[in-house]
Computed example of a mutant assay.
Amino acid sequence: MNKRLFLSAPHMSGNELKYIEKVFESNYIAPLGEYVNKFEESIVTYTGTQNALAVTSGTAAIHLALRVLGIGEEDEVLASTFTFIGSINAIIYQNAIPVFLDSDKSTWNICPNLLEDYLITCDKKPKALIITHLYGMSSDIQKISDICKEYGVYLIEDAAESLGATLNGKHTGTFGDFGVYSFNGNKILTTSGGGMLVSDNKEWIEKAKFYSTQAKEPFIHYEHEEYGYNYRMSNVLAAIGVAQMEVIEDRIAKKREIFSWYKEFLGGIEECEFMPELENSRGNRWLTALTFNKTSYEKIMKLLDKANVESRPLWKPMHLQPLFNSSKSFLNGTSEELFKKGLCLASSTTMQKDDVKMICDIIKENLEK
C-alpha cells in the first residue's frame, strides 16, 4: 500500500532546526526572545500590516481582539456559520452572543447581501463581525469591510486558513480592524501550534500584548489591575515560524499547482464543482475542496481511506451544531447544501501529480452515473 497521503501535512523548509539550535544556544527558550520579534516582523513585512503579535493559537488571537474591542456579556457578534468552531469559541469566552450568517455560492464565504440585510433589519446592532476566509480563499472582503464601516461594526478577519491569500493585491487579514492567522500543524505554514494577531492600530496591539502576558503592570514586582492570559508564543516555536516564512510563496505555489492538477483531472466532469475563486483574488488553496452533485461524499471518503488517502467533509455549519441550537441565524441554505455535498481532498505540499491522478481515478471510477 502507498504511504498515507494526508490532508495537509507539515512541510519543513530546512532551516527550522538551525534556528531552533540558535534559540537553545541563547537559552531564551520561553516565553519570548529574538525569534518572536523576527517572526512578528516577517508577518508585518509580508502582509503589509502595521503591527503583529505572536500568540499561542488563532483562537487566542481572536479572543484578544474581542477583549481589546471591549466586547463582553450580552453583546452580539456576527460570525460565519460555515467555519471551524475556534472562530466561535472566543465569542463564548467573552460571554457574548454569536449570531450566524450564511454563505454565498460565489465564494462559499459570508454573503455580503445577507450581512447588509441583517444590519438593516436587526433590533440590536452587533458589536463585531468575525469573518472566516474559508479554505484559504478570500471572501468578498472589501465589500464586507465597507458594510461594516457604514454600520459601525468592528471587523475581525479569521484568516487562519488564508495566509498569503489576496484580493486586489491586498492580503486577507489586513482589511479589518484585526486580522488573525493560525500556524496549527495542518496550516500552510506551521509552528506546530501558534497564531498571530495583526492590526494597523498600534495601541490595540499593545493592549493585546498586555493581556497576553497576564496583564502585568510595568513594575519590577507582579502588580495586576486587570486579569490577563498566558497567550504569548515561545521563542522555540517562533524560530520554526521564521524558517517557514522563508518559503511561504513556494508553499502557496505548490498548493495552487495541486489544485490545478485536480482541476485537470476532474474539471471537465459536471458531477464535480470546485470551490470558486473570487475575481481579482488569489487564494492560497490551502485545501482543494469540491462538491458532488449526485455522489455521496461519504462513499468517496471511504474509498479514499481504503487507498490510504485522507479526506474530510466540509465544515458542518455552526447553526447545525448542538451547542448552538438556540442561537440566532440568518440563513439562505448555502452552507447546509455545501456540507451535504462537499469534501476536502488531500493537498499536502509534498504530493506529486501522480498522487493526485491516483486520487482522481478513484473518484472518477465511483461517481454516480
Results as ranks from 00 to 15, higher is better:
F292K: 00
G179K: 00
A165R: 05
I188T: 09
D158V: 10
I43W: 11
I91Y: 07
G70T: 03
E16F: 05
L17Q: 15
Y211K: 02
G48R: 04
V198F: 07
N201E: 11
F324C: 00
N235G: 13
S212H: 00
C360N: 03
R285N: 15
L314W: 03
C122D: 09
V180T: 06
Y118T: 02
Y19K: 04
E249P: 05
K143T: 14
E246V: 08
T288G: 05
M1L: 14
K105T: 03
D140V: 06
L367Y: 11
Y93Q: 14
I62Q: 07
L304G: 09
K18P: 06
G173W: 09
S329I: 04
I130T: 15
T121D: 13
C272F: 08
S106E: 06
P313I: 04
I130E: 11
F175A: 00
L64M: 01
D75I: 02
E368P: 07
M12W: 15
M196I: 13
Y297M: 11
Y46M: 08
Q352V: 05
S347A: 02
K254D: 06
P112R: 06
E226L: 07
L320W: 03
F339A: 15
E273V: 12
G33C: 07
W261N: 06
N308W: 10
P276E: 13
I248N: 03
S311V: 05
P112D: 08
R251D: 04
V77A: 05
R4M: 09
V55H: 00
T174H: 01
T295K: 05
V356S: 03
K207S: 08
I258V: 12
A165Y: 05
E310Y: 07
T121M: 13
Y35W: 10
D158C: 13
G342F: 04
S162H: 07
F259P: 08
I147S: 14
F100R: 02
N95Y: 07
G193T: 12
I205Q: 02
N325D: 12
G195F: 01
F219T: 11
K254C: 09
Y35L: 03
